[in-house]
């Protein structure tokens, strides 16, 4: 009985510490466990070709998720990413007649522009991020469908090569994703922009009062998310060897939010975990791959994903309610 006064405090602290650890590093643990499981039980898993397949498939999700992580870091959300992908797909094949470089440039410009519109609605007009980007989610898919009404195959050798070739065994698609990871990591760790972004997400009012260019940073963040989604859309199109605005990027916003949340970035803003987001996307990819390779029904995949999201949300809860 003499310890009764001190005892309740200790376990509570340990528990919240454990949860904080789970939020920060749980995703690494989960990826490690899945890799171990596959190494033991999945035939042909430990082959270079397999890792290449997984990385190629996850690359567009990683790229979109990093843009999403930046937006979520400002306490926002970007629901338009999937539709921006489809718009980028449509625009890239529409301008292919001028050559690959102008076509891809136009696709990226379209992505940046979508982001600027969304960001302006949020920063200047004061529309809530979820509403502003929901409008874009609906509208941009419609626009993409008007531009390219049905799946359109292309034959441009340079664009085909972007989707299927590799340098020194590393597919271009994976290379682009790696560059994006490095750039976003650099932005967040080494630049004033990164620090401002986090400051705005942590407390917008305080950031405004201390004279930070809040609106400019917000618009830039949404524009970045738009450009990254467009990059992903172009890569996915190059891989498919056809632009398919009707179904490309459907539900991508949900996959991206999942990767960000599972990676330990809180939805309340003020924190962006770049490596965690990459691991979050990898975890979801590995999960899908594991269930597919073991020929289990896709409904299992959905339920397993839900379980992982719940664990992530539970781990994040403790920290945000403090």
């Amino acid at each position: 009985m003499s310890q009764a006064t001190a005892a309740p405090a200790r376990p509570a602290l340990d528990r919240s510490r454990a949860l904080a650890w789970l939020q920060d590093y749980g995703v690494y643990l989960a990826v490690a466990l899945l890799l171990l499981f596959n190494a033991l039980f999945t035939p042909h898993f430990l082959e270079v070709g397999n890792f290449r397949t997984q990385l190629v498939q996850v690359a567009p999700i990683v790229i979109v998720s990093l843009g999403m992580a930046l937006v979520i870091g400002t306490e926002g959300v970007d629901l338009s990413v999937g539709s921006v992908m489809s718009l980028a797909a449509a625009v890239s094949v529409l301008y292919l007649g001028y050559g690959v470089a102008p076509a891809l440039l136009m696709a990226l410009v379209a992505g940046a522009f979508s982001g600027v519109v969304g960001g302006s609605l949020v920063a200047f007009v004061g529309v809530q991020p979820i509403v502003a980007t929901l409008a874009l989610l609906v509208g941009l898919r419609g626009l993409a469908n008007v531009l390219v009404p049905q799946l359109k195959e292309f034959r441009d050798p340079a664009l085909l090569s972007l989707g299927s070739d590799a340098v020194l065994g590393v597919p271009y698609v994976v290379l682009v994703a790696a560059v994006v990871v490095a750039v976003v990591g650099f932005l967040m760790r080494r630049t004033t922009f990164g620090r401002r972004l986090v400051a705005i997400g942590g407390n917008r009012r305080a950031a405004e009062l201390s004279g930070l260019p809040v609106r400019r940073v917000l618009v830039t963040v949404y524009a970045l998310s738009g450009v990254l989604a467009a990059v992903a859309g172009v890569l996915a199109t190059a891989r498919l060897q056809a632009a398919d605005p009707t179904s490309l990027g459907l539900f991508m916003e949900l996959s991206a939010i999942t990767a960000v949340v599972v990676g330990g970035t809180p939805l309340t803003g003020g924190r962006v975990r770049v490596a965690g987001t990459v691991m979050g996307a990898l975890l979801m990819q590995l999960l899908t791959s594991t269930l597919t390779k073991h020929d289990l029904p896709s409904s299992w995949n959905q339920m397993a994903q839900a379980a992982i999201i719940l664990v992530a949300v539970y781990a994040a809860r403790e920290r945000t309610t403090r």
């Binding site: 292919l96 001028y98 136009m106 522009f113 519109v117 302006s120 359109k152 034959r155």
Partner: peptide, 26 residues
């Protein structure tokens, strides 16, 4: 502001669709 954002977007949309040129013989 809302009108400004909308006006700017529609101008840009027109520009995007105006001068498209896809691969031929598709």
């Amino acid at each position: 502001r809302l009108r400004a954002v909308l006006a700017a977007s529609s101008v840009a949309l027109l520009a995007v669709s105006g001068c498209a040129k896809s691969e031929d013989g598709g």
